[in-house]
């Protein structure tokens, strides 16, 4: 009953805050706000409901205490008509002081108990057998995603199935890092969890609506921390199965772009990148086997268009200065060839 009321309150608050905030923004083109106020997955929902409860309590404290303060300032301001004598000196009062020690203690107890329930509910949630396992590995300025059960490896754009009431299939993420600390944050789906080398963390998501959810790295990790963006595609079960199937294919072999492939394999590209089914097995950079299935390049730094791709290979600095891929000093011809090759990696 109580929970339901809070839930309704929460939804109302969510809608109101949402309308107010979006409308007050100078919208430039389509907006896709990664707002914590628009939860779309159980952990995010639970957090949101909890936050509404906390805001109402702290808001109450603010009104009472701030109100008293305002009244004091107004009522006891010095006036011209005041006599010159000092006001009565009051040194303290044990009862009052006891009261304003005990009441906050009680409030803290309530806040703590409510919080603790949610901590355990989210953090210690049992993992259903149907759950999808994904390993996320942070790299300086890009994300590596591995689906161990399916043998799929991809980068920067995570695909997970929707997990509605019909088919409950939450995604459990195992998080770690290849270098410095990063943090996985998609506000609409869940709170953030850090990716730390030598240390395994876990978190889970169960998005209830298909769609695209944006997020980004939330732990300062070096020069291009700002462009370590993150996209999560929540697919319908059918879409997801199809996606997995296509990702399981080895890299496409197209003899029309053999020259480009040759460039890729003779330049240092293959030391850092993998294209499955070829001799390229580097792991320092993103897996390129299905590069064309991604909407963006270099973890969201730019759209995945042929021009951008060519420019990126020519000079990564022009989009993402400080990214760890070097400019490979290819000739224009080589650039065209390698771009054409990568364009076939669907």
């Amino acid at each position: 009953m109580q929970a339901k009321r809070i839930g309704r309150l929460a939804r109302f608050g969510s809608v109101a805050a949402w309308l107010w905030l979006t409308s007050s923004m100078l919208a430039q083109g389509p907006q896709r706000v990664p707002s914590t106020l628009a939860p779309a997955s159980t952990p995010a929902h639970q957090i949101f409901d909890l936050s509404v409860f906390v805001v109402s309590i702290t808001g109450g404290i603010f009104l009472v205490v701030g109100g008293l303060l305002a009244v004091a300032l107004f009522r006891f301001r010095a006036r011209k008509s005041d006599s010159l004598a000092e006001p009565a000196q009051i040194y303290g009062s044990t009862q009052i002081e006891l009261a304003w020690t005990v009441i906050p203690v009680l409030i803290v107890v309530v806040l703590f108990l409510t919080t603790a329930r949610i901590i355990f509910a989210i953090q210690d949630a049992p993992k259903p057998t149907a759950a999808l396992d994904v390993t996320a590995i942070g790299h300086q300025f890009w994300w590596e995603f591995r689906y161990p059960k399916y043998g799929v490896v991809t980068a920067n754009e995570l695909h997970i199935p929707v997990s509605g009431n019909a088919a409950s299939r939450p995604t459990f993420l195992t998080l770690t890092s290849a270098d410095v600390n990063h943090s996985f944050w998609v506000p609409q789906l869940a709170g953030k969890t850090d990716l730390i080398a030598n240390h395994i963390n876990t978190m889970w998501l169960d998005p209830n609506t298909p769609g695209l959810y944006l997020g980004q790295c939330a732990q300062f990790c070096g020069t291009q921390h700002a462009l370590m963006l993150l996209r999560v595609y929540v697919d319908t079960p059918e879409q997801f199965d199809a996606w997995i199937k296509s990702q399981q294919q080895p890299g496409r072999q197209d003899s029309a772009v053999a020259a480009g492939r040759k460039v890729f394999e003779t330049q240092a590209c293959m030391n850092c990148h993998t294209v499955s089914g070829t001799s390229a097995t580097g792991r320092f950079g993103p897996d390129l086997t299905h590069l064309m299935s991604r909407a963006t390049l270099a973890s969201g730094a730019m759209d995945n268009t042929p021009e951008n791709l060519r420019e990126w290979i020519k000079s990564p600095d022009s989009f993402k200065r400080g990214a760890l891929m070097p400019a490979m000093q290819l000739s224009d011809e080589q650039l065209d060839q390698v771009t054409a090759y990568l364009e076939t990696l669907k």
């Binding site: 805050a17 905030l21 979006t22 007050s24 923004m25 100078l26 919208a27 430039q28 083109g29 389509p30 907006q31 896709r32 706000v33 990664p34 707002s35 914590t36 106020l37 944050w185 506000p187 944006l214 997020g215 980004q216 790295c217 939330a218 300062f220 921390h225 700002a226 462009l227 963006l229 969201g300």
Partner: peptide, 19 residues
Amino acid sequence: LLGMPRSIYTYQPDRGWNF
């Protein structure tokens, strides 16, 4: 609350953080 992380030197125009 709208999801803007700290320590970022720039942000995307489509996130609703401009104004």
